Amino acid sequence: MIIERDNPAGLHSTPGYHHVTTVESRRLVFLAGQCPLAADGQVVPGGLGAQTDQIVANTLTALRSAGAAPEQVVRTVIYVASSVGEELAEVWARLNDSALAPAFSTASTLLGVAALGFPEQLVELDVTAALD
């Protein structure tokens, strides 16, 4: 498998992700949106930080089940139920300080949204990985 990441000249510099990710792969893995749910199906308490940590744990578990690692992630979309820039930045920083951090060096989008699927849910992560 070949994953190439690029920031072409003429585009703005980024806080760690790449504008363009090109992949030659035999297998793609698409994860369902990873929510901040504990194994019992309940949204974890503790606010944005705790929920971000839970989506990291859930995403790592899902990737491992497919035989994938964070370094093989080629696209992420991060949804935060907030329009406050500081809260979006907090999620981005926390993700990039986690064991999942290599996943965010690729093509990535961070969105503030009005609401997510579960009551009290503040964050969700959509991930695509490429494997040999």
Rank of each mutant, 00 (worst) to 15 (best):
V43A: 09
V113Y: 02
A62P: 03
V44T: 12
D53E: 12
F30E: 13
G47E: 04
V20Y: 02
A129T: 03
I2F: 00
M1S: 14
A81Q: 11
R75K: 13
S105W: 01
L100V: 09
L100Q: 12
T106A: 15
W92Y: 07
P8R: 00
Y79L: 13
N7K: 06
G85A: 15
T106S: 15
R27M: 10
L110M: 14
F104M: 06
T59Q: 09
Y17F: 15
G10M: 04
Y79M: 07
E120W: 07
V56W: 01
S83D: 13
E4T: 13
N58M: 03
G16W: 01
V73D: 05
L28D: 05
L11M: 13
P119Q: 11
P119F: 00
H19Q: 08
T21M: 02
V56F: 01
R75W: 12
G46K: 06
V123A: 01
Y17N: 13
V123N: 05
I2R: 15
L37D: 08
T22V: 13
Q72H: 15
A107L: 05
Q72L: 05
G67D: 03
A130S: 12
V73I: 08
N7A: 01
Q121V: 09
V80P: 10
R64I: 00
T61Y: 00
T76W: 04
L48Q: 06
L48W: 04
D126M: 03
D126Y: 09
V80Q: 05
V77H: 10
L110T: 10
A66M: 01
G49P: 10
A9S: 13
A62I: 01
A114P: 08
P119N: 09
S108R: 02
M1Y: 00
T52D: 06
N96T: 13
I55M: 03
P119V: 04
S108H: 04
G117N: 13
C35M: 09
L122T: 10
R75I: 00
D132V: 02
A57D: 11
H12I: 10
T14I: 00
E120Q: 15
L37Y: 08
L125Y: 05
V23L: 05
G46H: 07
D6G: 06
V73G: 06
A107F: 11
R64H: 13
S82F: 06
L116M: 10
W92N: 14
V20K: 07
N58E: 07
S83L: 06
A81L: 04
A129P: 10
R27C: 09
H19S: 08
I3V: 15
G47I: 05
E90R: 12
L122R: 14
